[in-house]
Write a protein that binds this DNA or RNA. Structure first.
Lengths: 337, 337
DNA sequence: TTGCGGATTGCACGCAAGTGCAAGTCGATG
DNA sequence: CATCGACTTGCACTTGCGTGCAATCCGCAA
């Protein structure tokens, strides 16, 4: 129970000796107020510690300024980097970020979106999971904008930002072959998201075209521990792979650590490794990992710009789908060709 | 411009053939509604896709359900882990997290708090920086609760959660001495926050008592790169240290990487290292770092519980200050004593 | 049938803002 | 001095919701 409540425009008006409308107009850009009234209002507001109530303003304007970020595994390096960029850019665009965590349970994303609706978020950005069509439709009907990042989905309406996962898989396969690798492998998680599967398929397709087979293992999540397990499984094979593409950098870190410390392998001499995401740890000298950089900045910029300019429904559907390129960052985990 | 707006309680009422009050009461726990009306309202709401407008509800109840998290460097492993725990627990407590990024600029935290006030957040949790007293007072006067995490501050009112940084510094000094280290060093950042300085002072005090001097270097931020630079500075000294306590795990990771790959030192044989935070990377086999675990879960639990129960102003001031213990996690970067 | 108690319902008001409209102010011009 | 026009100002209504109060309904006992 707060003993004293927030200051209202009414109180400011009384202190400044003007009407409440004048206060309202003072804080509304473009409204008509004389310089004198404005000054008196601002002084009174400053003295009382008045701040416009965005809840009420949002109610009137039907525009809350809130953008809802729907994510799982926030503590993951790649996720947190993207989140950081998104929140900063949203802030610069005059929006405020609301956070909803999801887990792997069914309907988790749907509940998150309902939360967004309850707070009348102007938009929701979905980084994890995929909402049910009915909820998506409800959001769009309600005038809420939707951005799906790396979430392959074909519904019209939301802005979809994706990477060239398939092509990246192909590019890295070529790199392995140039480095003289003979036995390629792909280390994936069991998550089976479109991004991960795209990398896998692209890698296999390109390798096949180059005349090499690819051993594929899938295990666990996309994290470090799963990478270790995958290494244990793959490096004990009779035909030990000498070129491994890991679906994420975290998998690659776990894989490399196990390869070096458990199997005593030297990277890149005996084993070439590549990852995906370009998390900060990839550049650490313990890993020095060749990997694809998620264009985090570009993703955030596209998303926020689209939200800010308020792309219309009548714009062509192509404009709702963006494919960005993941840049290959050369480091030392693959031999020079 | 949304073509269609959100569904209002009025529309639901009309469709269900009841008054708007009935709709409102249906969604208010404990209110008096007959089972029949309730059912009809719920059906209509479901059909129309109605969700209570929390902006309006917050306006009425003077309780928005929003908790504002004020942070810088979100993408840092320790920060993102804490953030994850906080958001999840807030969510479980029926609150929703709002996110405000701060930078190092003056007044950045103050602006963040003003944002919290504008959205009538029930509380703000500050993880970075320290707000001006006047703003703090305004928040408290307005009935907003405040939690300061690892932010040494002596104002009454906010809940302050801190660690036993000083004592931890002492504990690790003892461990170094047991391991036979003769030349201790403390690698710190220039940030100079109370937590970092507490670790430094505690470490020096204990070492001095044990008859050892401590070389201290401070450089840059608390990140990996700063750790590398610190290693370069410290490991080129005539009297090379053989036991280094790094103020954070990231510093330690950078330090270890430089020590091994640039100076060819073997850890823990030639050099013992300890860190602080217990980020995920500390447990990776490349680092296997002995470190102090931030009780992330406990911190979040305390903060959220305090917010949920709504501790009163008339409770004793001691209840507003919590000191948690950082647990020493033994791994392989310090020799066994 | 009447009276009574309890549960349910609707009306109307309030929360804190934004805004159209009409009234008011002021200076300049004819 | 009257008239015009530009600029300000305040009134009143609106947004979506919660809730006190009074009215209504129902069942049951007298």
């Amino acid at each position: 129970m707060p003993s004293k409540l927030f200051v209202s425009a009414q109180e400011v008006a009384e202190k400044a000796g003007v009407s409440r409308s004048a206060v309202s107009r003072t804080f509304t850009p473009g409204a008509s107020v004389s310089a004198d009234t404005r000054r008196r209002v601002l002084e009174a507001a400053e003295a009382l510690g008045y701040h416009v109530n965005h809840l009420a303003r949002g109610l009137m304007r039907n525009e809350s300024g809130i953008v809802c970020l729907i994510v799982s595994d926030v503590a993951t390096p790649y996720r947190s980097a993207l989140l950081r960029e998104l929140t900063i850019q949203l802030q610069n665009a005059g929006k405020v970020a609301m956070f909803v965590n999801t887990d792997r349970s069914d309907g988790s994303v749907d509940r998150a979106l309902q939360q967004a609706i309850r707070y009348r978020a102007d938009a929701s950005i979905i980084l994890s999971g995929l909402p049910d069509k009915s909820i998506t439709q409800l959001c769009l009907r309600s005038g809420q904008r939707l951005v799906l990042i790396n979430r392959d989905d074909d519904q019209p309406g939301p802005l979809k930002i994706n990477l060239d996962d398939y092509e990246s898989g192909g590019r890295i396969a070529t790199a392995f072959v140039r480095a003289g690798c003979k036995r390629l492998a792909f280390a994936n998680s069991e998550a089976g998201t479109p991004s991960l599967m795209g990398r896998e398929r692209g890698f296999i397709a390109a390798a096949t075209k180059l005349g090499l087979e690819v051993v594929v293992e899938r295990y666990g999540s996309t994290g470090y521990e799963a990478g270790r397990v995958l290494a244990q499984r793959m490096l004990t094979r009779a035909e030990r792979p000498d070129g491994v593409f890991c679906a994420t950098d975290l998998l690659a870190c776990g894989f490399m650590d196990a390869a070096r410390h458990q199997f005593g392998l030297s990277i890149p001499d005996q084993l070439c490794v590549a990852g995906f995401d370009d998390i900060e740890q990839a550049s650490w000298s313990s890993f020095n990992l060749t990997t694809f950089a998620q264009p985090v900045m570009a993703i955030a910029t596209r998303a926020v710009k689209w939200l800010a300019t308020g792309g219309h429904e009548d714009e062509p559907e192509e404009a709702h789908s963006v494919r960005l390129k993941a840049e290959l960052i050369w480091r030392g985990s693959i031999r020079k060709g």
